[in-house]
């Protein structure tokens, strides 16, 4: 009798498992390559080394489950990093040379490989907004890394204390696009990423910057004109900057700077981040500690 019951039980669990697998395979396809997700769900073979495994433990399970294993294997995660400033995987002469950086450090989720370029283009230019969440989730491991890094810089003694909670950051903001661009594209990818990250970690999202004008016709300008242009490209909004100050003025310890995380999609030379940081510092009445988190490092 007992044996019969056990047999029945095993049968039914088997059936349920099969049904579940069938549901999984039939209802979902990988958002990046469009192929069906079959039997790949339970084989995280892409986790190669222990270090990477620890890094990727910050990826939400929904990401791992909805992206196929070959696409996941194609992601060139940017870890470990060599340059502690810009977050590159190689030693970086740019950052050594730069003396006037207005931001403290940048971390990027992935290297801007041809596949990643294709993924971002799918979202940004083709307008496949279904990818939005996946791409933003890919930034979570790098978010954890930069939080730890920043905490270590502020309190070398006990970095774990702050980094464990996401309460480290006072605010999260993003690189704006021009209004023409926003109208044409229908969204600002940096703003979307920032908003999703802020939702994940309950960090207040502030819209602090405006982009002055199009930079399309850069090619008609001389180098110095261009430099001047990029420098003046962004401006901080006095109203939201004021809002940020007032909302933090009570809780902030004296002399502690506002910790601000700036989000963008791609970090190439760092001039965009630099320009944004400069604009923010100019408008701020108290000191800011600006870090950047970007989706890709090219």
């Amino acid at each position: 009798m007992l044996q019969l019951l056990r047999q029945l039980f095993q049968r039914s669990t088997h059936d349920i498992q099969q049904a579940l697998q069938w549901l999984n395979t039939s209802s979902s396809e990988c958002p990046f390559c469009g192929k069906g997700l079959s039997k790949t769900l339970l084989s995280p073979s892409f986790l190669k080394s222990g270090g990477l495994q620890a890094y990727l433990s910050y990826l939400p399970s929904s990401f791992i489950q909805s992206v196929c294993s070959s696409c996941q294997a194609a992601i060139p995660w940017l870890t470990p990093i060599k340059c502690r400033i810009c977050g590159r995987g190689i030693t970086c002469t740019d950052c050594v040379r730069r003396t006037d950086a207005r931001f403290i450090a940048n971390r990027s989720a992935v290297q801007y490989s041809s596949e990643m370029r294709e993924w971002l283009a799918q979202y940004k230019y083709r307008g496949n907004e279904r990818l939005e969440h996946m791409l933003a989730q890919m930034m979570l491991p790098a978010f954890a890394a930069i939080t730890k890094e920043a905490a270590f810089r502020t309190q070398p003694s006990s970095p774990d204390e702050v980094s464990s909670s996401s309460s480290f950051w006072d605010a999260i903001t993003f690189v704006p696009v021009s209004s023409e661009r926003a109208e044409e594209r229908g969204f600002n990818q940096a703003e979307r990423f920032a908003s999703i990250l802020s939702g994940y970690h309950h960090i207040p999202l502030y819209d602090l910057l405006i982009r002055q004008r199009h930079t399309e016709k850069q090619s008609f300008k001389t180098r110095s004109e261009r430099m001047k242009d990029t420098r003046r490209l962004f401006q901080a909004k006095p109203e939201t900057m004021g809002l940020l100050h007032t909302s933090l003025s009570n809780s902030l310890a004296p002399s502690r700077p506002i910790r601000l995380l700036l989000i963008d999609d791609i970090y190439t030379t760092g001039s965009t981040i630099q320009a944004c940081a400069t604009a923010l510092h100019e408008q701020a009445s108290i000191s800011l500690a600006i870090y950047a988190l970007t989706w890709a490092r090219s």
């Binding site: 907004e129 279904r130 926003a182 229908g186």
Partner: peptide
């Protein structure tokens, strides 16, 4: 149809995900 907050028309706006490869067709 996939609906997102649209910066162009300023509200939730549907786009067609079936023909996305041919350029985005959307409400506005």
């Amino acid at each position: 149809m996939h609906r997102t907050a649209c910066a162009a028309c300023g509200r939730m706006c549907a786009y067609c995900s079936a023909c996305l490869t041919m350029g985005r067709s959307r409400e506005c």
